[in-house]
Design a protein around this nucleic acid. Structure first.
Lengths: 103, 103
DNA sequence: CGTGTAAGGAATTCTGACACG
DNA sequence: CGTGTAAGGAATTCTGACACG
């Protein structure tokens, strides 16, 4: 969870090599809200391995002709589901703790 | 094992921020054989998270006054031990497989 | 031995725009 | 809408050297 996967340390040139995407595309997907790299003090973008995985998925969808807007909506929905699951897990945990204490 | 930890994707400027070490020091530790970053086609160095962890350890040792040569020897010895363990584990595995088959 | 620094060149990254469609 | 490209500037990285000790 506190893994290296989400550390934003990779610059765009390397992302280009890792994903096969052009800088132009990568910056464009950012503008459309599909990824959100970090910015250093002087404004250079830094990406995480997570971002790279996301970009690979985006590349696949784009090849299928899916528009960035749709891709974003799908991604947002998946995130929503994940958040709901986390919330439910938490609730369940708290309920369990509550009943265990009372018994 | 095939984790992100060993992927060489971080440029020296970022390593500088992550470790607090100067570029000069980082390059010097490389020359002494303490780390071995990758090189891109045009010669820029790329480091892994492993390299960064190693650099942090080096920084600690250096603060204690330990010389790079000693640090290298210690690191080489640790690696040797690890290799021996891996070999022994493998041998043990093969022995077990052998006897299990014969019984 | 370990590290700082100035030097000059080459490569990187950024933004805004023109282009096509 | 999605992507390419040329443009100009700013920041990055590299190497070899001089310096101190």
């Amino acid at each position: 969870m506190i893994s290296y996967k989400d550390k934003k340390v990779i610059s765009i040139g390397t992302v280009t090599e890792l994903t096969g995407l052009s800088e132009r595309k990568i910056r464009y997907y950012e503008k459309r809200g599909l990824i959100s790299p970090m910015r250093t003090e002087r404004g250079t973008r830094k990406y995480s391995f997570s971002d790279i995985e996301t970009l690979m998925k985006i590349a696949d969808k784009r090849e299928e002709g899916v528009q960035t807007k749709e891709i974003k909506e799908d991604m947002d929905n998946e995130n929503k589901k994940k958040m709901v699951n986390i919330r439910d897990d938490l609730l369940r945990q708290q309920l369990n703790a509550h009943f265990n204490v009372r018994r």
